[in-house]
């Protein structure tokens, strides 16, 4: 096994990793705020809003992500009448699937964070004259994110690995190029290289979240 061979197979694989990273960044950037929105909705005073959020979370967490991705990429265009308007670029459709799916998980994580906050925090904020909204933004949310941080870290690492599901909807990413190389060269080195690339990505994430946890230790 030569260095040249490694460079040769790594180039397309790193390109694939670029797709993986793009998907990851898009999915995180959109699903975290969307998830928080669902958390707020699930606690709404309006039964209809809360019911919608609960149902949404139930469906997204209760069905396989692969099924959802296939549905967005290949199912939606089959809908009568409106289907033809729902043909998306497959990468876009996959992003949509990931965002909608992970939003449900983040919603649950944030809900857990909210539940962990003592009632006394709301009361102190109220007695100090903060409005409900001010209390949520200045007192509750920062604590909720702090509590949720380890679970968010965990979920993010899962997301990196879940990007491999792009393979199922034929969007070329890291795994796709890995298999191309394996099949072409009849050699397992690409698997190892792919593993190392995934590990580097998850290591970077782990370090990033360690840093955040330290920064927001509040001690």
């Amino acid at each position: 096994m030569s260095v040249e061979y490694l460079v040769k197979i790594s180039k397309p694989m790193l390109e694939g990793a670029g797709t993986t990273i793009s998907l990851f960044l898009i999915a995180i950037a959109l699903s975290v705020p969307l998830g928080f929105l669902f958390t707020l909705m699930s606690r709404s005073r309006f039964k209809l809003v809360a019911g919608f959020a609960h149902t949404y979370i139930y469906i997204m967490r209760g069905t396989p992500l692969t099924l959802q991705l296939l549905f967005f990429c290949f199912g939606l265009p089959m809908l009568p009448v409106i289907g033809e308007f729902l043909v998306m670029d497959r990468f876009v459709a996959a992003c949509l699937g990931f965002v909608l799916n992970y939003a449900a998980y983040f919603a649950e994580i944030f809900r857990g964070g909210l539940l962990s906050i003592d009632k006394g925090q709301h009361e102190a904020a109220q007695v100090l004259g903060l409005s409900r909204w001010q209390a949520t933004v200045k007192v509750i949310m920062p604590q909720m994110f702090r509590v949720a941080l380890p679970s968010v870290a965990n979920e993010s690492i899962t997301l990196v690995k879940d990007t491999a599901l792009l393979y199922a909807v034929a969007v070329p990413e890291l795994l796709h190029y890995t298999l191309t190389a394996v099949n072409r060269d009849f050699n397992l080195t690409p698997f190892v290289v792919a593993g190392v690339i995934y590990l580097m990505m998850t290591l970077a994430l782990t370090l990033f979240f360690k840093f955040l946890e330290k920064k927001f230790k509040y001690e």
Binding site: G120, E123, K138
Partner: peptide
């Protein structure tokens, strides 16, 4: 009001705890 369990805001420093309400309200 002063509570039995203090109910300080754990994510803010002592100074932050004192200044949050006057600055927001």
């Amino acid at each position: 009001m002063v509570f039995q369990h203090f109910n300080l805001f754990p994510h803010l420093t002592v100074q932050g705890n004192l200044e949050l309400a006057p600055r927001t309200v």
